[in-house]
Design a protein around this nucleic acid. Structure first.
Lengths: 231, 231
DNA sequence: CCAAAAGTGTTCTCCATACACCCATGC
DNA sequence: GCATGGGTGTATGGAGAACACTTTTGG
């Protein structure tokens, strides 16, 4: 039982930075919710809440994600734990932050039934955030940028079937710099991680691009051989 | 006040994986303490304890480190937060894990005054550990190995004045594979991060090697220029 | 003078980069 | 037929990897 310890105890929350991609505007987005309770009522924040007895931290993060935004079954990874005294005006609250990567499919617009609204914001122009959430988003962005170059997590931000150009756009958006398309293709195809589909892109006013999927089996084989993903 | 929340609350601990280097035997070591309290009394564990009101998580980790091993003023970085239900037989305890890197100077042998003993163990042959500490050490090892190749944290494990060979040994020990000394020197010197001292190694039964120190100012300049450390 | 580790250059291969044009499709 | 993005090859330079001998010192 927790209360047998001699010291005062903190509350433990999980908060989740949700990243999404707007393939049209080529923007990296973060999903925020509008707080309906004090403190910071009416202000934007990343979704989160208190951990419950009997659940793991990751389960708690997934539950809060689902409850507050309707998003489920996405890439979710622990980011960092924030525990500075004074970070929450209610008292002593330690927050275990996670970040999620969601594909554009099915999560384009999130409509929640409860009063609280959720909406996507471009990372370049975020509103003022509640608590220390600006800091948390900052850390999440650094992690995403860093990890993208050595782990195949970018695919989580794309639809299941995507074009090579979309993949390149993703990297350009997150890294923040243009890449040479010939060199990019060489590298991607050289890793042999994409499965070419018979299907083509459609509904575009120009030549249709071929669609690919990320081949997780090939990736796992590659890892076993000691070869790493790198862009 | 924490107790106004409706849910039961966990206790929050910090635990710390302490890495050290044995330059003689070329072993990577972890410092463990023998528990004197239940649960797991008499078993080896990584040092840790509960966070107190008013201190940050990092302060708590540093305090526990000092209290239980006498080590202070060392590299300390947050690792991961472990919160699976059932990880602590006393009840619901979430642990924020840190890892520390200590240099051989002054911390070769730790003699604590209280009953609990602390000792260095080779990572290759650790005893059975209390709680989920084996898992925590495992995660810390992976982080150390990974981070060593893109951040200049290895110097934290060496004495302030070291030879190039000692630096190479460090990398060979942690990465677990022999490196070509000519290529290693080329790379290290090419980054221009070491300050050459007028001093030489002494007390060795063969040609004495030159001593160097890590030049943090040069490193910070390098980072500003967008150039990254890499081995 | 012998043992042991320090210190030093060159060659080759491969990968990253730079760079420009034709192709397919929708309108 | 034209506008728009899709898709393709080559040449060059730089970095990493492979590789062996001389130098210095203590004993």
């Amino acid at each position: 039982m927790a209360h047998k310890y001699q010291y005062e105890m903190p509350a433990v929350a999980v908060d989740c930075v949700i990243f999404g991609l707007d393939l049209e505007t080529k923007d990296l987005k973060v999903m925020l919710i509008e707080r309906d309770l004090e403190p910071f009522a009416g202000m934007w924040a990343i979704p989160g809440g208190f951990v419950r007895r009997g659940e793991s931290l990751e389960q708690a993060a997934a539950r809060e994600l689902e409850e507050e935004t309707g998003i489920n079954d996405v890439f979710l990874e622990q980011l960092y734990t924030f525990g500075d005294p004074g970070r929450d005006p209610r008292g002593w609250v330690i927050s275990v932050a996670y970040y999620a990567l969601v594909s554009p499919e099915g999560h384009r617009v999130v409509a929640r039934t409860d009063a609280r609204q959720a909406a996507w914001f471009t990372v370049k122009r975020l509103p003022h955030l509640a608590f220390d959430h600006a800091r948390i988003v900052q850390v999440a962005l650094e992690r995403l940028r860093g990890k993208l170059s050595y782990a195949p997590i970018g695919f989580e931000l794309l639809p299941r079937k995507f074009t090579v150009r979309q993949l390149q756009n993703l990297y350009e958006i997150v890294v923040g710099r243009k890449l040479d398309n010939r060199n990019f293709r060489k590298k991607i195809f050289g890793m042999d991680l994409l499965r070419e589909l018979d299907e083509m892109q459609h509904g575009v006013p120009h030549r249709a691009a071929r669609l690919y999927t990320f081949d997780e089996r090939k990736y796992k084989q590659l890892v076993k051989q000691g070869l790493a993903f790198e862009i």
